[in-house]
Computed example of a mutant assay.
Amino acid sequence: MVKLHIKQGDQSQFLYDTTVEIPINDLLKDVVAIYNGRLKVQRICAEIEELAKHGITLPPNMQGLTDEQIEDLKLKDEWETKCTPSGGAVFKKDDIGRRNGQAPNDKMAEVLNKTVKEAKDMISKEKVKIDVCVTQATVKEALDILRGAVTIVYPMGLPPHDPIFAEFENTEDLSWNTGKASLEVIEEANASIWFSGKEWTRGKQIKDFIGKNEKTKIIAKLQKKGHGAPAREPVVSEEEQKKMMAYYYKKQEEFKKLEAEAEDSYMDSPWADNNQLKRQFHGIGNVKWGPR
Rank of each mutant, 00 (worst) to 15 (best):
Lys204Ile: 09
Asn286Leu: 11
Ile152Phe: 04
Lys125Gly: 02
Thr216Gln: 13
Lys107Trp: 06
Leu27Ala: 00
Gly290Tyr: 09
Pro230Gly: 05
Ala149Leu: 06
Asn274Met: 04
Gly64Arg: 02
Thr57Asn: 13
Trp200Gln: 06
Lys198Gly: 04
Pro104Gly: 01
Pro104Leu: 05
Gly157His: 06
Pro234Ile: 08
Ile130Ser: 14
Lys117Trp: 04
Trp289Val: 15
Asp162Phe: 01
Ala46Cys: 02
Asp121Pro: 02
Met108Val: 01
Arg292Met: 12
Ile48Lys: 00
Arg202Gln: 15
Glu141Ala: 08
Glu172His: 04
Gln223Pro: 03
Val20Glu: 10
Asn100Trp: 02
Val90Gly: 00
Gly37Cys: 08
Ala52Asn: 02
Glu110Gln: 10
Trp289Cys: 07
Met1Tyr: 12
Glu118Arg: 07
Lys93Asp: 08
Arg147Asp: 13
Gly148Asn: 14
Gly55Tyr: 05
Pro60Phe: 01
Glu21Gln: 13
Arg232Ser: 15
Tyr35Lys: 02
Thr57Lys: 08
Ile210Trp: 05
Glu68Asn: 10
Ala33Phe: 06
Gln11Arg: 10
Ala142Cys: 07
Arg43Val: 09
Gln69Phe: 06
Gln241Pro: 00
Ala89Phe: 12
Tyr266Pro: 00
Ala189Asp: 14
Lys242Gly: 02
Arg202Asp: 09
Tyr16Thr: 01
Gln136Glu: 15
Ile193Arg: 02
Glu261Cys: 05
Ile152Gly: 01
